[in-house]
Write a protein that binds this DNA or RNA. Sequence first.
DNA 1: AGCATAAGAAACGCAAGCGTTCTTTAGCTA
DNA 2: TAGCTAAAGAACGCTTGCGTTTCTTATGCT
Lengths: 221, 221
Amino acid sequence: MTRQTLARPAAEAPCAARDAADVVRRRRGAALEDAILAAAYAELSTAGYQAFSVEAVATRARTGKASIYRRWPTKQELVLDALLEVLPTPEQCGIDIDIDTLPDDVSTADMLRQLAHIIVGLLSSPAGDAMRAVKCEAFSDPELARAVDERFQEPRRQALIELLHRGVRRGEVRPGADCALVADVLPAMLAHRVILMREAIAESEITDIIEQVILPLIEVR
Amino acid sequence: MTRQTLARPAAEAPCAARDAADVVRRRRGAALEDAILAAAYAELSTAGYQAFSVEAVATRARTGKASIYRRWPTKQELVLDALLEVLPTPEQCGIDIDIDTLPDDVSTADMLRQLAHIIVGLLSSPAGDAMRAVKCEAFSDPELARAVDERFQEPRRQALIELLHRGVRRGEVRPGADCALVADVLPAMLAHRVILMREAIAESEITDIIEQVILPLIEVR
DNA sequence: AGCATAAGAAACGCAAGCGTTCTTTAGCTA
DNA sequence: TAGCTAAAGAACGCTTGCGTTTCTTATGCT
C-alpha cells in the first residue's frame, strides 16, 4: 500500500545524510493526500476543532501548508474530508448491523447490549473525539454537522429502529412501543454522558443502562 | 497622536445633545459591572464561546475594554461570572422543584410533563444557548464546565431523583426502578436533540417522549 | 538522462483578538 | 466648588492562524 514512506535506517548515497533516520522522502499524489487526511484527523481528535490549525496538520504530516492548500481550498473542507473519510469505515466504528441476516438465536437484548458497547467504544476512541469536536462546532458550521448526521448517524439510527421492529415481530419488544423514539434513548444517554457530561462509562454502567432503562422500556408486559 | 478624535461639532452645554437619546451617561461601580455581565451573557448566547470576544462585550456594554480588564483578569473569568450570575436565577431557568411542599394531588407524571416543558424552554432560550456554548467548550476549559455542572445541573438532577423516589412512595413509580439512572433519561434525550442534534422540539414531541418513553419506563406493572 | 511537475520550506500580508497603556473627561465626595 | 477616582475610548504590541507566494530541488515519467 504505502510507498517506502518509512525511513530506511542505513541510507546512504543520493540524498541521505540529513541527520538521523527521519528522512521521510517526498511523497506525492495519493500517498501524500492520505498522510494529510490522517494528520488532519489526528489533529481533530487531539486538539479539537477550535484549536485545529492547518499549520499543525502540515507539521504532523511532515509537509508544507502549500501542499495542503493545493488540494483543499479551506480549512473547513479539509476537516470535512478528513472526518468523512474516517467515519464510515467499519473498522473504525463497526456499527454495521445487517438486520436481515441476523441469526434467529440472537435476541434483541443481545444486540442492544452489543450495540451499547460499540457506541461507548466509538465515543471513547479518537474517532469519538473527532465527532465530539465536530458536534460542538456544529452551530458554527451547520453543513459539516449535517454531513456527519446524514452519512453517519442517520443510517445507524435507521438500523437500530429496524432492530426494534424485528424485536416486535419476535415478541421481544412490546407492540405498542414507538420504535423511532425508543431508538433514541440509548444513543442519547450514552452521548449525553460522554460528550456533554464528559464522563467515562464503565462496563457496569453500560449494563445498568441496558438492564435498568432500555430493557424495562421495551419489555413485553 | 491626535486625541479628541471624535470631533464634537459644536456641542455645548453639560453633556446633553450628543445625538439622540443614546446618551448613556457614564456608569460606575455596580451599575457598570452589571451592564458588562449582561453584555457578556448576551455575547455568549448569540456568538457562542469561541466567537466570544472581550471587544464585542465592551462594545455591547457601551464601555471600554479597560473597564472590563480592571474587573476581570481574563476572558475566561468574565465568561464564568457572566454564566454563573445568570444560570441559577429562578426567573431564568425556573427549575426549582421543592419536592417536600408538593401538594398531594400532583402526580409524578404531571411533574415530569411540567419538567420536560421547563427543560425544553430553557434549552431553547438564550440561557440554553449560553449553556450549549459552555458545554461545547468544556473540554478546553474543564473548570468552567465543572462549575456549571455543580451549580446548575447537579442540584436539578438531585431534585429529579427525589421526585422519582416520591413517586415510588406514592406507588406511581415501580419499586425496582433505578431512580438515579431513570432520572437521566429525560434530560439526556432533550439535550441530545437540542444540543447535539440541533433540532427544535415541538410540543407534541415533548408529549411523545413523556408518554412513550418516560412513563412506560417507570410504570408500575 | 532529461524534463516537467509538484513537494517542502520559509516568508509574507492580513485580520482578529488578547491584554496594556495613555489621555481626556465625567461623576462622586469633601 | 475643587479634587480625586475611574470611565470611555483609542492606540499599541503581541500572538496566532489563514491563505498566498516564492524558491529550491526531489521525484516520476518519457
